[in-house]
Amino acid sequence: MGRYVVRRLIEAVPVLVLASLLVFSLLHFIPGDPASALADPEATQEEVQALRERLGLDRPVLVQLKNWWLSLLQGDLGDSFRTGRPVSEMIRINALPTLELATVSYMLTLTLGISFGVMAGVKVRSAWDWGVSLSTVVFIAIPNFVFGVVLLWLLAFTFGWLPIGGRVAIWDDPVAGIKTLILPALTLGLTQAAVLARYTRTAVSQVTQQQYVMTARAKGLAERVVVVRHVLKNSLIPTITLSGLQVASILTGSVVIERVFSRPGLGRVVVDSVQARDIPTIQGTLLVLVSVFILVNLIADLLYGVVDPRIRLES
């Protein structure tokens, strides 16, 4: 197991290095000039040039790359062109609302997704199964932002039960904080729960039709025991991989959902920075997000290895 973990960790390193190279090179092909975008619209050419020098944009690309990597090794993502502050600080601050949303959404996803999926999977072709299958098909098809705007219209605009958007920190005002969190978390949570429920249902239904489950049932074991001891244990193995991938989906989804509900967060940082040509911020945010995804996938793989020892031996 230890060797497996070490091997997977080592494998992740070149991907990270390549990803950082990709992120860096991508943004140096951007047409136009970040200094121009930042300078006052009426600034003269010399003023723009002075700003360019201050930001280090006049140096050769390879030098910029080397400097970027060197500072990355020191945990320094550079300073934002837009705000003049360290990118790491901006990410840290904006990650908070995003993580808050993602965590609540993910908890919704796991509880709703697995419970509905199992309920449908153990009783294939029941009314439950049809209901769950149909709604998952619909929820999977509807883009999260469409669902979000519909919820916004219904629950916030029409009934006025919840705020239209914005964010209040939970520790500042718990009631208002939760109110602003409900709609975005429901939006993200339900759409992802549908994916998980569907997958779980398939996995569970396949396991229930396996010989050993039939045997267990034939032995007259209580249904609850059959489900918990035999079905869940075996069917949740593939579910772990998917729920790992869903962390990435939820983080990406929050970029769009933050927009729907006017919430601050990493999504706003990315979109604003692209518009302002804030290169260090785009680079830093992309790199951090990619690293998170690599890490989450790694954890999912390792978990998979824990529950299913065959994995470690293969490949």
Partner: peptide
């Protein structure tokens, strides 16, 4: 306090936040 966009600002003004 920078709000995410005009809609968020409007909400905050209406509520006195």
């Amino acid at each position: 306090k920078p709000y995410a966009d005009v809609a968020a600002r409007e909400l905050a003004i209406r509520s006195g936040e």
